[in-house]
Nucleic acid binder design. Structure first.
Length: 107
DNA sequence: ATCAGGGCTACAT
DNA sequence: TATGTAGCCCTGA
């Protein structure tokens, strides 16, 4: 836990979930940005580890998180689920990637 | 206190 | 564009 994070009174998981919840429909965010917005710059892998623990029935938009290359970092069959959810929001992959310049969300 | 490992990244070939 | 290679930083053992 970090000093600046402690002042917020929350652990990394909570902070990451909170940011994830703000990612709007039809947009995506990278692991690195998610971590940074949660107060953990350069801790992209932390975001990954955290998301991996999400329950299957979560309401959070886990599928809107992709890597910095615009690619899905999940092994099949989860990658297929993520792709399907993204498409349902109008986000399609071309050559296995999302057009970050167009859909990347950054406040 | 240490250490390996993770849904990663940036940079160099 | 496609690898390879170092960093990064947190968590759990």
């Amino acid at each position: 836990m970090r000093a600046d994070a402690q002042t917020e009174g929350n652990d990394a998981t909570t902070r990451i979930y909170r940011v994830l919840a703000t990612v709007p429909y039809g947009r995506v965010i990278t692991y690195g940005d998610l971590a940074q917005m949660a107060g953990y710059p350069r801790a992209a892998r932390l975001a990954g580890q955290t998301l991996r623990k999400l329950p299957r029935d979560t309401k959070l938009p886990w599928h809107r998180v992709i890597n910095a290359q615009g690619r899905i970092s999940l092994p099949e069959p989860d990658a297929a689920r993520q792709r399907a959810r993204l498409e349902r929001e109008g986000i399609f992959l071309h050559n296995g990637r999302v057009d970050l310049l167009k859909y990347r969300w950054q406040p």
